[in-house]
Design a protein around this nucleic acid. Structure first.
Lengths: 222, 222
DNA sequence: AGGCTGCTTGATGTATACAAGTTGGGTCAC
DNA sequence: GTGACCCAACTTGTATACATCAAGCAGCCT
């Protein structure tokens, strides 16, 4: 088995992604090549490559001769993203209901149980992570890697914004019960129902947009 | 108005895309940085950036320390891509039926008429181009740029493969009549019908896969 | 004879140097 | 005081040089 040697550009990309997801880097923040190079103790070359990769995935925006900034998503764009997300995640759920193996179904059930544990402990950070695992399991359960990749990509792009939304009072327990419904449909091999419920689960996040927006720090949306 | 200055890396990316779509560069072909640098009379740096961009869009595959090759899509992967394409294009059509302006609808009708002209002239190359314009109009008609971009991206990734398929005898006139049906539904504001028909239009390409595969040169699929 | 080890070669990854464009501030004219 | 213009510093885009690693081959050991 050929040993994988992650290049510095790759490590950097991951580090920057982490910073963006964690909120250390906020939308609109400038990404100066020299500073980053100095901070990570590499030259500008791998920094540039990392920035281009992030640009390709939509997390940062690079304008020629003007440098890179963490993507500031306009409000209409954000609405669009949720509209597509709902459809893609619904498709994942539909396919998962039809294609998941018994083991995958058992794992899925376990994941949602873990979500419940964190909900009971009101551990926001934990729930956030468990939520991601849950959704990932459904993406993979579609047994369509192209679909899974695309959905994951959108999930990541909306991550900096979605994060703030779970702060909304009561949203977590709502989210959890929606998860349970989706899982029940999947375990019952009811593809259409699973898709419908998942679409609603994602769309709820869009429907409460007015509330949602008000929870965002200024500068997050253009 | 600040004059846009496309960087050399951008120009290069576009040139390589063209070569890939036109078939000058075939799946599996090696992309040597030095040769490309010499051929386009630039240094390796912009070549590298172009390759990374193409890698991000999925058209080429870059493995650390092993160089870049035009992506060779495995057969299961190709099936997956068509499965997602059908869903995305259907969504575009659904939204287009609801959201297209009168002008956009008029244009769409015109585009499909142009397709018909090329079909009558049995101009394969012309039909291929007109077909692209037609689909693009529907993507944009969804009035969801995120969706349009994602769909276009998948369309491009499958382009090297789809191209060979129109050679199948009778496929063009089939394709044309499917186009007409979709347009009729859109003009009638019938979103569900438009979505169904479009999904079928795309899926036909997947359903006849056994025929399709046999038309591909060896080496195209792994 | 077959397979493994080490070198050789050539490519890619990274660093640095140079060129070109953009931004910001300061000065001058009005 | 305000506006425009110009210059300078800084940032990014590109080129080139150096370091590092992966395939290929030759020779040796088993």
């Amino acid at each position: 088995m050929p040993r994988r040697s992650p290049t510095r550009a790759d490590q950097l990309r991951r580090a920057l992604e982490e910073d963006i997801f964690a909120g250390t880097l906020k939308p609109g923040d400038r990404l100066d090549e020299q500073s980053l190079a100095h901070r990570f103790e590499v030259s500008r070359t791998p920094v540039r490559e990392a920035l281009r990769q992030l640009s390709a995935s939509g997390l940062v925006e690079v304008r020629p001769r003007q440098g890179a900034v963490v993507s500031v998503i306009t409000l209409p764009r954000l609405v669009e993203m949720f509209e597509v997300m709902a459809e893609l995640e619904a498709m994942c759920a539909r396919l998962a209901a039809r294609r998941m193996s018994d083991k995958e179904r058992a794992d899925l059930k376990r994941f949602v149980d873990e979500c419940e544990d964190f909900e009971k402990k009101t551990d926001l950070e934990g729930y956030y992570a468990a939520n991601k695992v849950f959704h990932d399991a459904i993406y993979d359960g579609s047994h369509n890697e192209v679909l899974a990749d695309m959905t994951r990509s959108l999930h990541r792009r909306t991550a900096p914004y979605r994060r703030h939304q779970l702060n909304r009072p009561g949203r977590i327990s709502e989210s959890l019960s929606e998860h349970k419904e989706v899982v029940d449909a999947i375990l019952a091999y009811d593809a259409d129902q699973a898709g419908r419920l998942m679409a609603r689960h994602v769309n709820v996040q869009g429907d409460v947009f007015t509330d949602f927006i008000s929870t965002l720090p200024t500068g997050y949306v253009a």
